[in-house]
Design a protein around this nucleic acid. Sequence first.
DNA 1: AACGCCGTTCGGCATTGTCGAACGTCGGAC
DNA 2: GTCCGACGTTCGACAATGCCGAACGGCGTT
Lengths: 251, 251
Amino acid sequence: MPGTVQSIERAAAILRMLAGGTGRLGLGEIARSLDLAKGTTHGILRTLQVVGFVEQDKASGHYQLGAALLHLGTSYLDINELRSRSINWADPLAARSGEAVRIGTVLEGQVLVVHHVFRPDDTFQTLDIGTLLPLHATALGKVLLAYRSAGAPGELEQFTRRTVVAPRELALALDEVRAAGWAAEIEELTLGQAAIAAPIRGYGGLVVGAIGISGLVERICDTRYRPHPRLVGYVRDAARAVSRDLGAARH
Amino acid sequence: MPGTVQSIERAAAILRMLAGGTGRLGLGEIARSLDLAKGTTHGILRTLQVVGFVEQDKASGHYQLGAALLHLGTSYLDINELRSRSINWADPLAARSGEAVRIGTVLEGQVLVVHHVFRPDDTFQTLDIGTLLPLHATALGKVLLAYRSAGAPGELEQFTRRTVVAPRELALALDEVRAAGWAAEIEELTLGQAAIAAPIRGYGGLVVGAIGISGLVERICDTRYRPHPRLVGYVRDAARAVSRDLGAARH
DNA sequence: AACGCCGTTCGGCATTGTCGAACGTCGGAC
DNA sequence: GTCCGACGTTCGACAATGCCGAACGGCGTT
């Protein structure tokens, strides 16, 4: 890609690789995967270490992500307008619906969770801000796909028996999402779990994210195995409120 | 610095700058602060944009941190051994003490919070994982300073009337911390707040972090304005437990 | 209407980072 | 105990790379 700094692209590729794997990776492993000379890879890793983006386990020599990234990630949250505007509406939605609320955007063919409110009643749940979820097997993802210019990703992983993996079937589902203005997901990612989501529009009406609730199927769905209209209304109301805050209304 | 990749260092400097400021920054502003040509800065920013580390506000042209950093930061948390080992002991500490628990490491002359457990009873508190705190005005920071090879930072900001700003006074306080094996902070960062912390030792006995509790002065301290020995015991017990998990015991 | 500032583009030069081979060290295998 | 292989690291030479500075077009202000 002309006009871009190649060493930075390589550094980013290394960071993505370290984030994807189980944790520590060896220099040789990294160099081999990215088709780089060991010496080159070493120079990049050393620099990343100096700036705190990676750390090295002195004992094994292996590399892992560094602490500076945590602060950068948190700073992103502080800046992110989608998140800051959503917070005021996510809590009420969690309270009204009684379910956990999540807000997501698209990042590299997946859903990035930028905000998460725990289910009000319940106890210990793991915070999954910063987590990546599949686009085709979540309510948030379907919404984001439906209003997205880029087409669906080629590889559709099957998580449960109900996961939509056929491209044509997914395209039809996305048509329905566009027509209805909201999306549902019922046991397509995890058995016993269901979710409802609606699009958040930013300046100019563009869809910049999605907000939704998720929880046990028996609470999200009615006896006919379909999402409660009441909950759908809550989600759509919240999405509209956030969109209004983001300036979707003005023009 | 020879042997390091200069463009990556510059890219990291830009990211740090974007994280430090209030949010969006202009290209000229960045180029001026880092003494770079506008063209050079533009190339780096474009690359960072391609890899998702920065985003550009189409309207104003200003730059801000990108979503990919959030995922990298979260991945760091998943990897970080200090954090993963601490989690099991942070919850019991919060339960026993009835206060909020935080675990921190040193990052660039500040305390980086890598884990945070809310005060059990209370209601809404803001999660400050990823936040940076001053070294000299927090209990966590004093512990980290006391066992650190590098000397204290030159600039000691005054937050309240009780903040220790005189280098000699701080050095004496750190001596006490080393002698006692724990540190306290009473209204030195925020009025009405106090904290207790103890060091976490990793492999080889090296101090790799600190764990502590913080809350209202009247709960942390006794009538003589000194930390409750019972709470100090809880914190030190937790610190020892985490250290044992991290392998400080073996050799 | 002209100015100043912004983000962006482009070409030439040399600084910069890349490559490949060689080194020291550690662990495991035999 | 002693190979052997793999690892992370260092180094020097080449040229490809990304840096610089000047020029461009758009926008808001003066």
